[in-house]
Design a protein around this nucleic acid. Structure first.
Length: 938
RNA sequence: GGGUAAUUAGCUCAGUUGGUUAGAGCGCCACAUUGACAUUGUGGAGGUCACUGGUUCGAAUCCAGUAUUACCCACCA
């Protein structure tokens, strides 16, 4: 798979491996991905005896485009999965797509409106036809996201790909709905819901966002009271005035008192209500209520059994109760109503600067109108969930599994926001008035419904539970003509609503593991489906759920809720939450602003998926937002190229020596130099750090460690040493090890290089075994000895540059040492070559003449620079170092002289400090001697 | 109003349980040029770790408060 170029100049014309001068990801990635996929490397085996490691991919919108949020998610999950796979686990990463109910339906409706000039496609086309159109649209466009997921290098098991609207998932949705209904967790009732007049559907509390808006706050005279409002258009039906029972100012009015007052469209009779939910401090302490359009007012009305009247229609226009204003839209009606009240002398004052929060639909961005509507809800407080022999409510079970650490959230602080959310959680409205989605599996009898609504409702569900209707219902298309009412034999129809898309998403970790063939058979019960699905048995609970913190509530919490209830297992053991990707200015990237938008596909084509992955992982911590910009990505592209060229160097070394790298086997027979031993030792430390870091989900740390090892140690020192003393076996072995531990982060480039250096009998790197830490190879002494050589080389380079010594000047260096003579003798060649020194003397006394010096631990470095030295400069730099050392020394002495420190500090630290002190004292002595030399000379 | 976090070099960020003479990448300055790599090499400059107190032998790290910023939740007529 690498490029094998024939070299015409080569006399024997035998083609040798030759890597291109620079790594070109675009020539590599798709090819490698296909090789992996075709080889079956992504496919997990439910029958294996290996320990399972499962990741359920958060399903992207089936009609969507890959964005950076997906890219982060895919990169992280792929690292988890590739590591687990190499570590010998049965790794399953299950991909899928989401039907994205509201989003998809509104896209298609808009398209039809625009292209076919049909103003109301729902009315004109009807349910069946519209669903067909949407399904067609999804089918046509879902291939896009699949190929884009592949572009990231995602090693997910495509043979198990799932879709949130497929028949198996539909059956699971129905099973869970019926189970919850039977347990009394799902009920239908008239409640105040969030109505989106624009999208013509209810939405859940979590699908609302608030925007600050300045709108006038009016004070009106209402009988003897003054009442405040920012929404005069809702006030037509107001006939109750509410105040706190303890409010002294209104002690003269009793609960139930009535009075007549002039109001918008004439006189009304109002009733006094005393309720503790009124805040006496706010405004006048008196308010009128609009139970149909306000949640608080609704609660008061329920409590006192008051009348509720609808004022605003579901189309957002005023109803006949508004009299002359009926049919007007809110924004048109409001000023007119205020004007009328003003003319009547009922407007007391208007605060034009009032700021309040406007509730908007997250999807459609239109205002939300609270309405009373009969909807389906999930009761989160009823105690029917069996867990550890206790009966718990859905709220309690959600708390329980996180509190007891059965589920661990990373970063931990999100646990408190999770608990806070649960505390505020109200019953979940699960019905939606859109068509694209899982239809509510409830049937009504048109014949007897009028007389017995509840009865026919129940019989529909009960019948369903008795599995008479299951076959028909496993397809989401309606089949009501087949169904007869068990009560009266009349024709039944299905509930027209669909379920909140999060209802089906909440089942994702396990519904995707249910055997699809088995699920087609209606005689197999739900419990048997769980028991007999091999994937479910092997791979659930999943290991880690990785997703953005923005859907902790929408999705993660609801998966916990539904899964513990429905299958009696936690959905995942660990939740890893990543942050949002932002622009370099910290702004959200938005499609409407292409300037700030980074398109992952564009980045991949120019820098490669590996570089993109690194740029999103290194330097990011979980739960924190991350800023991404092109220079950062380019930096990691450079790193990838560095690795590529290091490999190229290794291959060239082998080629020059006539060695086929694939035949190299590394073992005890290999003779090792100091640098070899140091490198092999450092590699063990790397393996340990990387393995532990990945286990602890510290992906950024590990990425940085790998980056630094490859560049700063392997390339900058080991490969440089190799230029004077090459050991092919060590080169190949260490490069192989590096590729393995780097593979999860940059799978493409490592696989590509691996092909050139892998052992003859080896397969793909993706299936290689993870390196095992071997303490016996750790050789601290050699590592430190090489470090001394490195320090000497660095010191010489530094002195040389400080004194502007040209590189072509023949340089003589004297190393003064008492203890390292042997080491320096042996490694002299490397020092000469890498520091570009002509001659080195190793002796025990300082040389004569014009020299510049550096003082290392155990070694003095002196450069003889006749006629090139600026003595003042050298003196100044020595003085500066002396000053620093003295400060440092004084600090340590203070510590060591402190009785409390000596008593309480750990032994190890004291020893360390003493060691440092000794070194500082030694250096200081030498610097002082050297400075004295200056004084005598001048 | 309640909560969670952030504040470290010009920029973007690390800093794992308190013990480092506070690190990295980019940028900057100087030098190097066809020998793995200019998507490079070598060296350098640059930080009183937001502020004020406290705990401690010892604080970027723990505690309290202040300031600024971001996000989340609730929403009062």
């Amino acid at each position: 798979m690498l490029r094998k170029d024939h070299n015409p100049a080569d006399p024997d014309d035998s083609p040798r491996p030759q890597l291109a001068k620079a790594y070109i990801p675009a020539d590599t990635e798709d090819r490698i991905y296909k090789l992996w996929e075709d080889s079956g490397a992504f496919t997990a085996d439910a029958n294996s005896t290996k320990e399972p490691f499962t990741v359920s991919m958060p399903p992207p919108n089936a009609t969507g485009q890959l964005h950076l949020g997906h890219a982060v998610m895919l990169a992280l999950e792929d690292i988890f999965i590739r590591t687990a796979r190499m570590q010998g686990k049965e790794a399953l990463w299950i991909p899928g797509t989401d039907h994205a109910a509201i989003a998809t339906e509104s896209v298609v409706i808009k398209q039809i409106q625009k292209e076919e000039r049909i103003p109301d496609p729902r009315a004109s086309l009807g349910r069946e036809e519209l669903l067909k159109r949407i399904a067609h649209f999804v089918e046509k466009s879902r291939g896009t996201i699949r190929s884009q997921v592949r572009k990231m290098g995602s090693s997910c098991d495509w043979s198990r790909e799932r879709y949130t609207l497929e028949p198996t998932l539909n059956r699971m949705v129905n099973e869970v709905f019926v189970k919850m209904y039977a347990d009394g967790l799902i009920y239908r009732g008239h409640r105040i819901v969030n109505w989106d007049p624009k999208l013509q559907t209810t939405v859940s509390d979590d699908e609302i966002e608030y925007k600050e808006e300045k709108a006038p706050f009016y004070m009106f005279q209402y009988g003897p009271f003054q009442i405040g409002t920012s929404r005069p258009e809702t006030k037509f039906g107001d006939k109750y005035v509410v105040m706190h029972p303890d409010d002294e100012r209104y002690a003269g009015y009793k609960h139930g008192d009535t009075f007549e007052t002039e109001w918008i469209n004439g006189p009304v009779t109002a009733t006094v209500i005393k309720d503790k939910s009124v805040d006496p401090e706010f405004g006048t302490g008196v308010m009128t209520i609009t139970p149909w359009h306000d949640a608080t007012d609704f609660a008061i009305a329920e409590h006192h059994d008051l009348d509720k009247e609808q004022v605003i229609g579901f189309d957002g226009k005023l109803l006949p109760i508004a009299g002359e204003f009926a049919g007007l839209r809110i924004e048109d009606a409001r000023p007119k109503i205020v004007e009328k009240l003003k003319e009547k002398g009922l407007l007391v004052k208007a605060d034009e600067e009032y700021v309040h929060n406007l509730a908007l639909s997250q999807r459609g961005k239109g205002p939300i109108e609270p309405q009373i509507k009969e909807q389906w809800f999930i009761d989160v407080n009823k105690r029917v969930v069996k867990w550890n022999r206790k009966e718990m409510s859905l709220k309690e079970i959600m708390q329980e599994v996180v509190q007891t650490k059965l589920i661990k959230i990373i970063p931990e602080r999100f646990e408190s926001t999770y608990f806070h959310w649960i505390d505020n959680l109200r019953d979940w409205c699960i019905s939606r008035q859109i068509w694209w989605g899982h239809r509510i599996p409830v049937y009504y009898c048109s014949a007897c419904q009028f007389a017995q609504t509840e009865m026919s409702l129940e019989s529909g569900v009960l019948n369903h539970e008795n599995s008479k209707l299951k076959t028909q219902n496993s397809e989401f298309t309606s089949v009501q003509s087949l169904i007869q009412c068990p009560n009266c034999g009349g024709q039944v129809t299905q509930d027209p609503d669909t379920l909140d898309t999060w209802f089906s998403s909440a089942l994702w970790t396990w519904s995707t593991l249910i055997d699809q063939k088995l699920a087609e058979d209606p005689s197999v019960t739900f419990e048997d489906l769980l028991r007999q699905s091999p994937d479910f048995q092997k791979f659930h609970p999943t290991t880690v759920m990785e997703t953005g913190y923005d859907i902790l509530f929408f999705w993660v919490a609801r998966m916990i809720l539904m899964t513990t209830y429905a299958v009696g297992q936690i959905p995942f053991e660990t939740v890893y939450l990543h942050g949002m990707v932002r622009t370099r200015e910290g702004k959200k990237m938005s499609k409407s602003d292409p300037e700030t938008m980074i398109d992952p596909l564009d980045i991949i084509s120019r820098y490669g998926a590996d570089a993109l992955r690194l740029s999103m992982i290194v330097g990011q911590s979980p739960g924190a937002d991350t800023k991404l910009y092109e220079e950062k990505i380019a930096g990691y592209r450079n790193f990838i190229n560095k690795l590529w060229n290091a490999s190229r160097f290794v291959l060239m070394q082998c080629e020059q020596a006539g060695i086929d790298p694939k035949t190299i086997e590394f073992g005890h027979h290999v003779e090792l130099s100091l640098a070899d031993k140091a490198l092999l030792s450092a590699l063990q430390d790397l393996i340990l750090d990387v393995t532990r870091g990945l286990e602890g989900y510290r992906l950024s740390d590990v990425g940085e460690r790998l980056y630094s090892f490859v560049w700063d140690y392997f390339c900058d020192w080991y490969l440089e040493v190799s230029k004077g003393e090459v050991n092919h076996a060590v080169l190949i072995h260490s490069l192989r090890t590096i590729l393995k531990v780097l593979h999860p982060y940059c799978p493409f480039v490592t696989e590509e290089i691996w092909d050139s250096i892998k052992p003859t009998d080896a397969g793909f790197l993706i299936k290689e075994q993870w390196p095992i830490y071997d303490e016996e190879i750790v050789d601290r002494e050699s590592y430190q000895q090489l470090q001394i050589i490195i320090d000497i080389i660095t010191a010489i380079r530094k002195l040389r540059q400080e004194h502007n010594v040209p590189l072509d000047k023949d340089l003589t260096v004297t190393l003064v040492t008492a203890e390292h003579t042997e080491l320096l003798q042996a490694q002299m060649g490397h020092i000469k070559r890498m520091a570009r020194v002509a001659e080195i003397f190793i002796q025990e006394s300082r040389p004569e003449g014009e020299i510049v010096s550096a003082f290392l631990t155990g070694v003095e470095v002196h450069l003889s620079l006749e006629g090139l030295i600026d003595p003042e400069k050298e003196k100044a730099s020595l003085l500066k170092e002396k000053e620093n050392l003295e400060k440092f020394k004084a600090g340590i002495e203070a510590k060591l002289g402190n009785a409390q420190f000596m008593e309480r500090a750990p032994e190890k630290l004291v020893v360390e400090q003493k060691q440092k002190l000794a070194e500082a004292v030694e250096k200081l002595e030498k610097i002082k001697e050297r400075l004295n030399g200056f004084i005598t000379h001048s």
